[in-house]
């Protein structure tokens, strides 16, 4: 009898412990309180899409040059990655604001995450194919018979797929092989080209490759790239903080546009092993993507481009039901300062 009671007691304790853990996890999803209190900087956590680098340098610049401080914000800039998915972390409240791909935001919303874009860094897609110049590939019409490394289940693959369909080209005529981020199979000649982002060209050149760029935007693909986003709950409770964050953040981008040669020194403050020359080269390839329409502030978004972004996901089979585009984004918090 006493053994049974002990077993029941242990079981009850386990159930209570599990309930407490779940309750803690849920409570971490509550939005942080708004407002600045008596001049004390408001803490904000910002989660990048990947690691510190030139393509996401605005927050690093804003932090190192004191732009966030000027807005009364104490921003913690955190690296993203596979293990630190910015979408899930912002949706759950673990982080306040994040950076992700526009296509990823659409897919996340379609899976129930209440996220909304508040600014677009890349006004068009950074996706491309980089081909070794000795392969002779300069356009999609040259792809047939060539060996292509494909980063699977990422936006580069979806956009490549849709580009080929829209151009009436047969993807099966290309000899495809899945790759990740290591370029060894390109460097050693097993592959002629690979799907990637324009910003990766300097990394390939640093490995001794001479490369042609086949940019998808030149071949009918139109899509936002990286976007700044937050959760609907955080936005509704902290609109002023988001506004101030974006003011400092896009001031950071403007500083990078005006001082590209200094971006290496900024990034090295956060990532000591970064190469200043490579980061400057990456930034110079990235800057044209930030250009908005005449008279519009950095980060400005249009429903047309969001619809085009969503259309690619529909055509590639990633999205079954289209979402209501106005719910995906808002320009209300962009100040253009």
């Amino acid at each position: 009898m006493s053994v049974k009671r002990s077993v029941l007691a242990v079981f009850a304790i386990l159930v209570i412990a599990v309930a407490l853990v779940v309750a803690i996890l849920v409570n971490r999803g509550e939005p942080t309180s708004s407002g600045e209190e008596g001049g004390i900087a408001v803490p904000v956590s910002f989660r990048l899409k990947w690691s510190f680098g030139a393509t996401s340098c605005a927050a690093l610049v804003a932090k190192s040059q004191g732009f966030f401080e000027d807005q009364g914000l104490d921003v913690a800039v955190r690296q993203g990655g596979f293990e630190y998915d910015s979408k899930k972390l912002v949706a759950s409240g673990a982080d306040d604001i994040g950076l992700t791909g526009a296509d990823e935001l659409i897919l996340a919303r379609s899976n129930g995450m209440p996220l909304v874009a508040v600014g677009a860094d890349f006004q068009n897609t950074p996706c491309c194919i980089l081909a070794r110049t000795d392969s002779g590939v300069t356009s999609p019409e040259d792809f047939a018979g060539e060996r292509l490394g494909v980063r699977k289940e990422t936006n580069v693959e979806y956009q490549y797929d849709v580009m080929m369909k829209r151009l009436g080209l047969n993807r099966e005529a290309v000899k495809e092989e899945p790759i990740k981020f290591d370029l060894t199979r390109v460097v050693d000649g097993h592959l002629d080209m690979w799907t990637t982002y324009v910003s990766e060209k300097p990394l390939g050149e640093a490995r001794g490759l001479e490369l042609n760029t086949i940019w998808f935007a030149d071949h009918g693909i139109s899509s936002y790239g990286n976007v700044v986003f937050t959760s609907e709950g955080y936005l509704s409770q902290n609109p002023d903080i988001v506004k101030r964050f974006l003011a400092a953040y896009y001031r950071g981008w403007q500083w990078a546009i005006d001082n590209p040669e200094r971006i290496g020194e900024v990034i090295r403050q956060f990532s000591p092993q970064a190469s200043p020359e490579v980061e400057t080269a990456v930034l110079e390839l990235t800057l044209p993507l930030l250009k908005t329409e005449e008279g519009k502030p950095l980060g400005y978004m249009t429903a047309k481009r969001w619809q085009e972004t969503q259309q690619i996901l529909v055509e590639s089979g990633q999205l079954e039901t289209e979402l209501d585009v106005p719910e995906l984004f808002t320009n209300e918090h962009l100040t253009g300062d």
């Binding site: 596979f82 998915d85 979408k87 899930k88 949706a91 990823e104 897919l107 996340a108 379609s110 899976n111 995450m113 494909v150 699977k152 289940e153 990422t154 899945p178 790759i179 990740k180 990633q318």
Partner: peptide, 22 residues
């Protein structure tokens, strides 16, 4: 996880990219 275009590990990576926790 490291590199593939099929298998259950690949499915997990694919689901993570799209935010599909289920």
């Amino acid at each position: 996880f490291a590199i593939s275009d099929r298998g259950l590990g690949y499915r997990i990576v694919q689901a993570s990219y799209t935010g599909n926790t289920v």
